Simulated assay, not measured.
Amino acid sequence: MKIAVICANGKEGKLLVKEALARGLDVTAVARGENKTAATKFVSKDLFDLTADDLKNFDVVIDAFGAWSPETLPLHGASLKHLCDLLSGTATRLLVVGGAGSLYIDKEHSLCVADAPDFPNAFKPLAAAMAAALKDLRARRDVRWTYVSPAGDFQAEGERTGRYILGGEELTLNSRGESAISYADYAVAMIDEAESGRHVQQRISVVRE
């Protein structure tokens, strides 16, 4: 299996590369500047400069793009649209490192995590931008996408246990009432999905076991 990790120099991107390499997969890291990953195959290119030819030989493309400043938040939607346009009509799957703010907190799917009164105001613009990008992604029937939302507490420095609970559209809690997962265990879940391809054109979510 040939996998490309886009924006591979980020914290999650590097862990995705490491996890995929540990399983013996053929991994190409893609990022601006120099290679900061464990991959021996590297493409130094901005996401928005990628072409269809750049991605045509991969079975799976993982989008680990992230933006946090007010002026760059719209790039969540723009970057995802660009990758979808490049992969439109192909057999290549697109896996997206998503957000938790758009997970539903009611059975009717009328309220999201970001709608809760205790959701931090500082993160609302980011959650809104990522939710808008997901909404646009759901409309793409020409791309074999999967959107993977982390738990509410997404821990950059957490340990890798190799265990997680797979959820769907709703915020899932573990047996201790927690919604948390480490970046490392999220990478385990993402590469599991890359290998299995069980949730094409679906949003899934993961939480620490």
Results as ranks from 00 to 15, higher is better:
residue 105 I to T: 15
residue 206 V to K: 06
residue 197 G to C: 08
residue 204 I to T: 09
residue 122 A to P: 00
residue 136 D to Q: 13
residue 142 D to N: 12
residue 189 A to C: 08
residue 168 G to N: 15
residue 159 E to M: 11
residue 153 D to H: 07
residue 177 G to A: 10
residue 169 E to H: 13
residue 107 K to H: 07
residue 146 T to E: 13
residue 164 Y to I: 05
residue 193 E to N: 10
residue 122 A to C: 00
residue 182 S to I: 10
residue 83 L to Q: 05
residue 116 A to C: 04
residue 109 H to W: 01
residue 175 S to P: 03
residue 120 P to S: 04
residue 98 G to F: 05
residue 164 Y to Q: 10
residue 124 K to S: 01
residue 84 C to M: 08
residue 176 R to Y: 11
residue 169 E to F: 06
residue 146 T to F: 03
residue 159 E to H: 04
residue 168 G to E: 14
residue 168 G to M: 03
residue 84 C to K: 01
residue 121 N to R: 02
residue 99 G to M: 04
residue 144 R to D: 12
residue 144 R to K: 15
residue 143 V to S: 07
residue 101 G to W: 04
residue 94 L to A: 06
residue 183 Y to G: 11
residue 84 C to H: 01
residue 96 V to I: 15
residue 116 A to T: 08
residue 111 L to K: 15
residue 196 S to I: 03
residue 87 L to K: 03
residue 79 S to Y: 01
residue 89 G to C: 03
residue 111 L to W: 00
residue 127 A to H: 02
residue 99 G to C: 09
residue 118 D to G: 02
residue 185 D to P: 13
residue 203 R to M: 14
residue 86 L to N: 04
residue 147 Y to S: 05
residue 173 L to R: 10
residue 187 A to D: 09
residue 139 A to M: 06
residue 202 Q to C: 13
residue 85 D to W: 04
residue 173 L to Q: 10
residue 163 R to V: 12
residue 91 A to K: 15
residue 178 E to M: 13
residue 174 N to W: 12
residue 91 A to S: 15
residue 159 E to D: 15
residue 183 Y to D: 08
residue 80 L to Q: 13
residue 149 S to N: 09
residue 186 Y to V: 11
residue 108 E to N: 11
residue 80 L to A: 02
residue 128 A to G: 04
residue 104 Y to P: 04
residue 194 A to E: 10
residue 119 F to M: 05
residue 104 Y to L: 08
residue 153 D to S: 14
residue 167 G to D: 09
residue 189 A to M: 10
residue 77 G to A: 08
residue 97 V to G: 01
residue 122 A to G: 03
residue 102 S to K: 00
residue 118 D to P: 00
residue 152 G to Y: 08
residue 141 R to H: 11
residue 115 D to V: 06
residue 83 L to A: 04
residue 148 V to I: 15
residue 110 S to N: 07
residue 124 K to M: 07
residue 140 R to A: 08
residue 125 P to H: 02
residue 149 S to A: 15
residue 93 R to L: 04
residue 93 R to H: 07
residue 181 I to S: 11
residue 186 Y to A: 10
residue 179 S to E: 09
residue 82 H to W: 06
residue 205 S to D: 11
residue 92 T to V: 13
residue 203 R to P: 07
residue 94 L to N: 09
residue 140 R to G: 07
residue 142 D to M: 02
residue 189 A to R: 04
residue 190 M to E: 07
residue 107 K to R: 12
residue 103 L to C: 10
residue 94 L to E: 09
residue 156 A to V: 12
